[in-house]
Design a protein around this nucleic acid. Structure first.
Length: 512
RNA sequence: GCGGCUGUAGCUCAGUUGGUUAGAGCGCUGGAUUGUGGAUCCAGAGGUCGAAGGUUCAAAUCCCUCCAGCCGUACCA
């Protein structure tokens, strides 16, 4: 049998796990500082509690992993952390204090094609405020998202872009795309606008019009809008993109040159232009007022320097967001293992989902939140070499020279003393027959020190402490193996009683 | 789902117009060295050439189907 794993699922090694834990600790610290508390829900939910993603007859396995329980009820692995939170809140609505502010991290599962940084099991880290109707709660989310990125060391390398779905809906209605008969077109428009950062204004124009051919020759059908509607949408969203791109360029240039951004005016002007345009072209449009409140709070927090921006092209998912939407995107190119630049997309996203709890309770419960794609973000950071995945130092290795029980007990005692002193240590558990293998093992594990005691040392009550790091440096000057072996480099003999103290001294010297 | 590219040793790859026993480097195992890592030298293991079918005297090589991986695209909660 060939050992293999389902595609889109990966094993994680020590470096991965440590890097993830380090990331999550930083994210958690930000959320807690903002006053959020942890909560946890199970990985399985009844399928109907998750939303409309029932296993359907056309593509029974599309989207979610589902199975039937003993009593034939459908259950599914969660595909995000928002739907389970809505269920949890609805179930405990009478006892939970609102606004209910929580965070939670966990694995989620999606049965779809994996891509760069995209897996079928991946980690998300969410924060939500349930029972908060005002735009201030949305603003807080966007600012916290920005703070989190900075805590991860990404200052100047991300942008949080905000929008409001009601604005998009209003604009479309104003240009004659309202009504049930245009539902299909509206969907197409939203999808096209969502591609703005990916394909640019021209690509979006193609998608709004006759369709677009991708680089493999595959063709995407367009919305087939008449020219005047395309122009109206462009002046709303695409024209603004031009300034958005130049603003982004200014921000990036400032970030790479390391200087603080002095001209917030760029972004101030961009926002003012946007609000002036909206108020003149689409007066009293629902959502614009919310966005302007949010923008004021963003300004008050000092994130109006390009880190948080208003961007009318942000769409996000079409499923449950009802108002404010926002997403976070990295501003540096991401490469894959082969060093090829790869389309990456957003690493975090969120928004307002006022209808999600109502599904269960029938009463209106406004809520807002966001999700960070931890696995995705980590892929980006890994390929960028920005991951602090410095492994723990290897363990001090107590080598096994003699295999009689009494000697083994002596080695065991040494290793236990070292551990008792808080020093990472292990006794060689492989086949001790060839002593050279033990040092090779220590070398490859990154052990800083090897402890050696043969019968003559034992008789004299001493041990050899071998500094492997120093030895490796000295080895460079030795070309003859005979000499290398007999030199016993970087090695000193100390009384057994001083073992812990001497090991500590050597470790300190190595780190100093 | 659609399109393109790629599948040869654990890894990275070579393999001539189809030609005899499919190779290299790295890695791995053992030895030179039964009490010392690195370097060096010697030896060895490891392959249904992604899978099945077809053409041929002869297929890693040509054809067909399938599978897998990567990239793009669609969908994306």
């Amino acid at each position: 049998m060939k050992p293999r794993q389902p595609r889109g699922f990966v094993d994680r090694d020590a470096a991965d796990i440590r890097a993830t834990e380090a990331m999550m600790a930083k994210i958690k610290a930000v959320y807690e500082k903002y006053g959020f508390d942890p909560v946890e829900t199970p990985m399985f939910e009844y399928t109907d509690a998750l939303g409309k993603f029932l296993p359907d007859t056309d593509r029974p396995n599309a989207g979610v992993f589902s199975m039937q329980d003993d009593d034939e009820q459908w259950m599914s692995l969660r595909y995000d952390l928002t739907a389970p939170l809505a269920r949890h809140f609805a179930q405990n609505i009478n006892t939970l204090q609102t606004p209910y502010r929580t965070y939670r991290a966990g694995w989620v599962f999606r049965n779809e094609k994996p891509g760069p940084g995209r897996f079928r099991q991946f980690m998300q880290f969410d924060a939500d405020t349930v029972g908060a109707p005002g735009p201030a709660a949305d603003a807080e989310m966007a600012i916290m998202m920005a703070d989190t990125m900075e805590a991860l060391g990404l200052k100047g390398q991300y942008v949080v872009r905000m929008n409001n779905r009601k604005v998009l809906d209003g604009v479309m209605e104003a240009i004659g795309l309202g009504g049930d008969e245009n539902a299909e077109k509206r969907l197409g428009v939203l999808r096209a606008l969502d591609k703005l950062d990916k394909f640019g204004p021209l690509g979006v124009r193609e998608l709004l019009g006759n369709g677009r051919m991708d680089e493999s020759g595959d063709f995407t059908t367009g919305v087939e809008l008449p020219e005047w509607q395309i122009q109206a949408l462009e002046s709303f969203a695409l024209a603004d993109l031009v300034s958005s791109q130049s603003a982004g360029a200014v921000y990036r240039a400032a970030a790479t040159s390391g200087r603080e951004i002095e001209d917030k005016e760029v972004f101030e002007e961009k926002a003012e232009t946007y609000f002036a345009y909206m108020n003149s072209q689409f007066p009293d449009l629902e959502g614009v007022r919310d966005l302007s409140v949010i923008w004021k709070l963003v300004k008050a927090s000092g994130y109006d320097d390009g880190r948080v921006q208003i961007d009318p092209s942000v769409v996000r998912g079409l499923e449950y967001y009802t108002g404010t939407v926002f997403e976070c995107e990295l501003t540096f190119p991401v490469t894959n293992e082969k060093g090829e630049e790869v389309v990456f997309g957003s690493v975090a996203g969120g928004g307002r989902y006022d209808g999600l709890v109502k599904r269960f309770t029938g009463q209106d419960v406004p809520a807002t939140g966001f999700s960070i794609g931890v696995s995705r973000l980590m892929t980006a950071l890994k390929n960028l070499g920005k991951l602090d995945d410095h492994a723990l130092p290897g363990p001090v290795l107590v080598t096994v020279m003699d295999r009689d029980t009494e000697s083994l007990a002596a080695y065991q005692q040494m290793v236990q003393e070292l551990r008792g002193a808080g020093i990472r240590a292990e006794m060689y558990q492989g086949n001790p027959k060839q002593f050279g293998k033990q040092l090779q093992y220590a070398d490859r594990r990154g052990s800083p020190i090897a402890i050696i005691q043969g019968s003559d040392e034992r008789e004299r009550g001493v041990v050899q402490i071998k500094d492997l790091l120093e030895g490796a440096r000295l080895a460079e000057d030795i070309t003859d193996n005979e000499e290398w072996r007999s030199a016993r480099v970087a090695q000193r003999e100390v009384p057994v009683a001083d073992l812990v103290a001497e090991v500590r001294k050597t470790l300190d010297a190595q780190n100093g």
